[in-house]
Design a protein around this nucleic acid. Structure first.
Lengths: 342, 342
DNA sequence: CCCGCTAGTCGAAGCGTTTCGACGCTCTCA
DNA sequence: TGAGAGCGTCGAAACGCTTCGACTAGCGGG
């Protein structure tokens, strides 16, 4: 407490270096390094002495020096979008799960925003700031994909571009999710159902997950012999209300609704309340959305497993960093939770 | 194109180093460094030659080496919370504005989550991974504050702890925001108003902004001679609905509502719709929330200037990094936008 | 005419790690 | 009993950059 060190062993002044640890433990610098990395056998006694010194001196390896010598920054980049039609809370859950998973592998996460564009990726990669990249919200025709293919650093995409050759992708199997919802409604005895999807701008942009849900929905309709329709759905109450009342008017036989739009879910429910339709008596509703939205509203839902996707993405990236080959596509199987709305 | 370099000058193989640039330009390594940093005078001719070489070779300085030699990582940490009662979209806007602002100063952003706790901060700081820290969602009695005071690395808080001595804080002036709302309602001729605030858990946690809004609200009530009450407000529709109908029943004279809870705003409006109260005829509503919520709902609001706060925080941090002293507290003045709800 | 500047450049010494090769032990097995 | 194989440790060479001090010209002032 009197020598510039605080109680918890944290130096407030100049940082402790590996040389001081080595001196304190009476060993060579390289020995300290090997104790810490475990890359060579070390006697139990030496290890203990070194570890003690590390603790009492409050040593933390210097990240820059480590990166320079080992050619590994132990940092991965997370590239987040910030655009129309993305549900932000889900994004955040992805982000936290990526951070948490990365920490498990002793890596940190550098935050890049998509609006820095290609240059941002190039810079981060070329300067060895990061060892690898995780990208979110990939579009069908994403300009970043060709760049990633050329980069020396490995990367993992969350979502699928149209041409996914040469890149690694992870996502929820949205087609299966769409099918699952229809199957559930069919099982419950419904004959006429509808899909309320993402805002039209999302379809136009060609974002993969919206289309794939639609495909799964359509396929399952045929499979189960149901009658059905699909509509895009905007995100303000008034627009949702217009869509919903239009839909109900046009299809009086409608008894099941699949909603794949996190931001609109609550508006849909408000709208039905206002139109006097009871859920699930008059209309069964199943949503494809994160649990934190479905749970309070007591909605039967296929959850978007943000945590799992993030963890998986990081896991794959670590495999690639270790030089192992990984499957180019990973589809996470959807799971449906039955609640009060069906 | 045939020598391991792609068209845009990006090396796909081993990275270009400053030595190669120096050789290519026919100057010393140090000269290249000085050209790039501008820390010493360089003749126009030499500068041009070096810059040309940089471009044609596609040189990017190695971040680790740079950090090691200069003792500056050019990275700042952004510590994000992920807890009950925080409105995530706002968080994201803070985050992006921090990233954008940091890039303006040629810095990158390392993402730390609050659940890594004190160790995360210590680690990032002690390993020289980052040069400084920006923390969000500071609580009144935040355990991180004492640690920050002891850290060699400068930091900036978004929000105010109870004891802000020795730390630098930025935030919207929520007291002023509360006052502003009341003043606006008073001006519109209302005599009895209410504040619907954050979920009770947020008050109990002692988060500063919730309390400060309440203080401003109360102060302004007295100032303008209004009658008023304040309630916490949960975030599911049913709870909001209960709170709102209870409030209206208890206070028949109520004609103005201040809502300071982003997640509940839309539920409040749904609830009023369902209760048959017209906005603004029967009840004027003014919200303290981000524009992306107020705008589509046509709500009169005091916006939470996420971009501005983030930019300001980074600006202050950069000042501190440059060794200059900065004001310990920065309060951003709120501005009210009149829309259709009052 | 010499001194002291400044502008422009260079060489070399770090910065704090990791990692490679070498060395001395102690075992084992032939 | 001597060769070979580990094990445990050390020393030193990178890693790619910044920065300090030194040096050379060229120039104005005394």
């Amino acid at each position: 407490m009197t020598d510039g060190h605080t109680q918890d062993g944290h130096a407030t002044g100049r940082a402790v270096t590996i040389v001081e640890v080595a001196r304190h433990a009476g060993v060579a610098v390289s020995t300290v390094s090997y104790v810490l990395s475990g890359k060579r056998a070390i006697s139990a006694d030496t290890r203990r002495r070194v570890l003690d010194s590390v603790r009492t001196l409050g040593y933390h390896p210097n990240a820059g020096a480590r990166a320079l010598a080992s050619k590994r920054a132990n940092v991965i980049a997370l590239v987040l979008p910030l655009r129309a039609g993305m549900h932000v809370p889900v994004l955040m859950r992805f982000a936290t799960s990526v951070v948490t998973a990365a920490r498990h592998f002793d890596h940190d996460v550098l935050l890049l925003t998509a609006d820095e564009g290609l240059d941002g990726l190039r810079r981060a990669a070329a300067s060895a700031l990061v060892d690898g990249l995780v990208l979110m919200d990939v579009e069908l025709d994403d300009p970043r994909v060709p760049l990633l293919r050329r980069l020396a650093e490995p990367s993992v995409l969350i979502g699928f571009p149209a041409d996914s050759a040469g890149v690694t992708c992870v996502d929820l199997d949205f087609a299966a999710a769409g099918e699952l919802c229809v199957a559930h409604l069919a099982e419950r005895g419904h004959h006429e159902v509808a899909l309320l999807g993402a805002p039209s701008v999302v379809y136009e942009r060609g974002t993969g997950f919206a289309r794939r849900t639609l495909e799964g929905f359509t396929t399952a309709l045929a499979e189960h012999g149901l009658d059905g329709t699909a509509l895009p759905c905007e995100e303000t109450f008034d627009e949702v209300h217009a869509t919903v009342s239009g839909l109900l008017a046009a299809r009086p036989g409608l008894s099941g609704l699949v909603v794949h739009n996190e931001a609109a879910v609550n508006h849909v429910l408000s709208s039905l309340r206002q139109l006097g339709r009871k859920v699930p008596q008059d209309l069964a509703v199943v949503a494809i959305c994160p649990d934190d939205i479905a749970e309070p509203a007591r909605l039967t839902s296929v959850l978007i497993p943000a945590e799992e996707v993030g963890r998986e993405a990081v896991g794959l990236l670590m495999e690639k960093l270790a030089g192992r080959t990984v499957p180019p596509a990973t589809l996470l199987v959807p799971r449906l939770t039955v609640r009060a709305s069906t």
